[in-house]
Amino acid sequence: MDDDVFAALSHPVRRSLLDLLKERDGRTLGELESHFPLTRFGVMKHLKVLESAHLVSCRKVGREKLHFLNTVPIQEISDRWISRYTAPFARSLLDIKSIAESFEREKTMTKAVSPRHVYELYIRASAETVWQIITDDEKTPLWQHFNMTSHTDWSVGGEYAWMMGDKVAIGGRIVEMQQPGKLVLTFSAQWAPDVAADQPSRVTFEIVPISEDACKLTLVHDDFAGETATSKAVVGGWPESLSRLKTLAETGEPFMLDRAG
């Protein structure tokens, strides 16, 4: 997987495509094509390479195919090559977090049909294994951002709370549960006054089996009330959480980050 990502990043046109999606996510092929002196087919070929490396994900909205920057593979490279060995030095050269900053959609698109943040990853574990991790409060600190713990009433309409120490960082209700394929939550951030002032948004986990021991996980975080503090903040946490979830599902061992440094 690392080889595919490095190969995809080796071409300047593909890096420029990622830069465009970092500036504003959810672009059509026509929008991206207008920035390059290439044919439509040429831009499509570069996008296919990025899709194959899972650096770009696509989602149909009406008749249009929209392209989204997927930062999970970059986070995985960070975990493998930077977090373990050279984090204090690499951060002075490259702020990985900046790669995963706010991905803005067209302001003219309605929030009802336009997901704000879309992440996808392939996991060498069964859909049931991934579902069991996500829905097990005891496993939450093994994959969640900042090693958060959780308390959940696992039923439709039930409340959940993701905790930092004895304080609720994120809370909400379960909107939909379809084991082992779909989990929909309301998302109310509470870790700071600016995000606590926002209306609740929505998080959807979609787990699609590929084989008995592999699945595709897509996370969509949407239904923000505009460009909120929450919509800007969560892009720093989801790539790390999903990368850690993948490691836990595939190896059975948590990737614990030491934040002391």
Results as ranks from 00 to 15, higher is better:
85 Y>C: 10
169 A>Q: 07
159 E>W: 03
91 R>A: 10
135 T>W: 08
36 F>A: 09
48 K>E: 13
46 H>Y: 11
11 H>L: 14
94 L>H: 07
20 L>W: 02
178 Q>L: 14
191 W>A: 15
10 S>C: 06
104 E>A: 12
202 R>D: 02
210 I>N: 12
127 A>V: 12
170 I>H: 07
201 S>C: 12
74 I>W: 04
128 E>K: 15
170 I>V: 15
165 G>W: 01
134 I>Q: 05
233 A>K: 11
37 P>K: 13
115 P>G: 08
71 T>Y: 04
139 K>H: 04
251 T>A: 06
163 M>N: 11
190 Q>C: 13
123 I>Y: 05
126 S>L: 07
108 T>K: 00
177 M>C: 08
72 V>L: 12
189 A>E: 12
45 K>H: 03
222 D>F: 03
150 S>Y: 03
221 H>E: 13
201 S>L: 12
243 S>D: 09
234 V>F: 11
139 K>D: 03
224 F>N: 01
175 V>S: 08
115 P>C: 11
195 V>I: 10
215 C>A: 14
58 C>T: 15
21 L>Y: 02
256 M>K: 04
99 I>R: 10
132 Q>H: 10
114 S>Y: 05
236 G>K: 12
72 V>G: 11
147 N>G: 00
150 S>I: 05
124 R>H: 06
52 S>L: 12
230 T>V: 02
34 S>W: 00
158 G>Y: 11
142 L>W: 03
258 D>G: 03
169 A>N: 14
215 C>R: 14
196 A>G: 03
140 T>L: 12
62 G>W: 05
101 E>A: 15
229 A>N: 13
42 G>P: 00
245 L>S: 09
126 S>D: 02
241 S>W: 11
120 E>S: 15
234 V>G: 09
252 G>A: 01
124 R>V: 02
180 P>R: 07
231 S>R: 04
192 A>D: 15
77 I>D: 02
151 H>M: 08
108 T>D: 00
107 K>Y: 01
155 S>T: 13
38 L>S: 04
193 P>D: 06
234 V>S: 13
242 L>V: 09
244 R>Y: 02
171 G>S: 12
115 P>V: 13
122 Y>Q: 14
100 A>W: 01
143 W>T: 09
23 E>D: 01
127 A>D: 08
206 E>A: 14
15 R>M: 11
197 A>E: 03
39 T>I: 01
25 D>N: 15
116 R>A: 10
201 S>K: 06
182 K>N: 10
95 D>E: 09
110 T>W: 02
229 A>L: 09
149 T>P: 01
197 A>N: 05
46 H>I: 05
82 I>P: 02
45 K>G: 00
226 G>W: 02
19 D>R: 10
213 D>S: 15
221 H>N: 10
97 K>Q: 14
223 D>C: 07
61 V>D: 01
199 Q>G: 09
179 Q>F: 01
18 L>R: 02
172 G>Q: 07
19 D>T: 13
45 K>N: 14
29 L>T: 00
195 V>S: 07
259 R>F: 10
180 P>D: 05
230 T>N: 04
188 S>N: 13
219 L>N: 08
205 F>S: 14
257 L>Q: 08
109 M>C: 08
220 V>H: 07
210 I>E: 14
33 E>T: 00
125 A>N: 00
60 K>W: 07
119 Y>T: 05
231 S>M: 13
260 A>Q: 10
188 S>P: 01
66 L>A: 09
250 E>D: 04
